[in-house]
Design a protein around this nucleic acid. Structure first.
Lengths: 214, 214
DNA sequence: CCAGAGCAGTACCGTACGGTACGGTTCTAT
DNA sequence: ATAGAACCGTACCGTACGGTACTGCTCTGG
């Protein structure tokens, strides 16, 4: 059926997709991460997922392997809407960017994203682990990849003149601003409803004003 | 001499300024924090600072007290230039903002700031500790306080129409963008020399373009 | 010169946790 | 039906670290 039920028991956790059961374990880890940050024990994971510690170690190698698998699992779950219209009117362009911005803000202010980024940040800086790298790849860098084709279309239609570097940096800054770092530092004053829509709207307007100047 | 040499031995570490010797200890902690993040032991602090663990506990209460004192000590060291000209020509206004932006970028990409923010981020989320709160207050919130009088002057001179909330969020976003989160996640591709000047320049130009629209 | 306090250095204690071993049970493939 | 593997639950081990206790040394005030 799935590779985790084969005799050889998932040889390398980094290459194979997690089985159903493994996914349950990883979701348990995500829960614990939201609740306790980095301070959960392997025993608590085993208990929460109703599995044995031995199984955890057989499947994921060690604690860091479990964390890595969890981060990758979450990354695989977050898919951003990818609208790629071939013809691009200004209204559609702006709406696309607004949706993108809103979606992004919702993701980075979510419990799981905050927990994951806290984990990655606190583990970054020591070699031995690739957590920071992975979150970096699946955060800003992936967003950039998804944004670039939209920028390209906008550029083609004459709405935008800046290069990808500048455009992305500007867009990121206007949309995210201090939201993420404040969330990571524990600021809870961001949960005003409708806040995200207001911010997305303004950010895209500002972005257009900047990139649309002749 | 100073209160730490009195008989009562620094009753509450949160209220009194650290003595010379205490400052040496706190600087040792900062060093260790840069080197090993959050994973240094009290024993390693004692060794590095050539003091006894007992002294650490007498002065700072417990590990969290030591971390808190360290964060506050560093915060007290970082003073941003505070130029407040009473008359404000456009050139001076823009130059002031550029210097502010450059200084800020230099701070947040520095080793110590990164280590401190990593620490605060990883400790945020659990009650029991105020580290996130403290870094938040001494990071974005202090920057905002320092920026507001400058904004006020600019507004008075007609260079800027946005309210403080919008102006600060916009300025922060354009200046910092993804720099800080990438640094915290371990991205080292930011050390290009002259980078900061380029970014500051562009950010302020963009800021003026946005806030200067009639 | 002496009394007393603070401190460095070190030994010590309790605990929590990463990682392993093992007995008993369930599932599967033949 | 049965052998064998995976797996759960739990007991176990070693270690690392937070926090305390103890022993002298040093410095200061009288």
């Amino acid at each position: 059926m799935n590779d985790a039920t084969l005799l050889k028991t998932a040889p390398d956790s980094e290459t194979s997709d997690p089985s159903k059961r493994e996914q349950e374990v990883l979701d348990a880890v995500l829960d614990l991460m939201v609740e306790e940050g980095d301070r959960f024990s392997m025993a608590s994971v085993a208990k929460r997922a109703s599995c044995s510690k031995e199984t955890l170690y057989r499947w994921f190698g060690d604690r860091d392997g479990l964390l890595t698998a969890t981060v990758q699992w979450q990354a695989s779950k977050v898919v951003m809407p990818r609208l790629d219209p071939h013809r691009l009117e200004l209204g559609v362009f702006k709406r696309t960017l607004r949706e993108f911005a809103g979606n992004w803000l919702k993701v980075i202010t979510g419990d799981v994203s905050i927990a994951l980024n806290r984990l990655a940040v606190s583990h970054a800086g020591n070699r031995e682990t690739r957590l920071g790298e992975i979150v970096l790849e699946n955060g800003p860098l992936t967003m950039r990849q998804r944004l670039e084709p939209i920028f390209a279309l906008g550029r083609k239609a004459g709405y935008l003149t800046a290069d990808d570097d500048t455009a992305f940096r500007t867009f990121f800054g206007l949309v995210v601003a201090d939201t993420q770092i404040r969330a990571l530092l524990g600021d809870t004053s961001l949960q005003a409803p409708g806040n995200i829509e207001t911010i997305s709207q303004r950010a895209v307007d500002q972005f257009m004003a900047l990139c649309n100047q002749t």
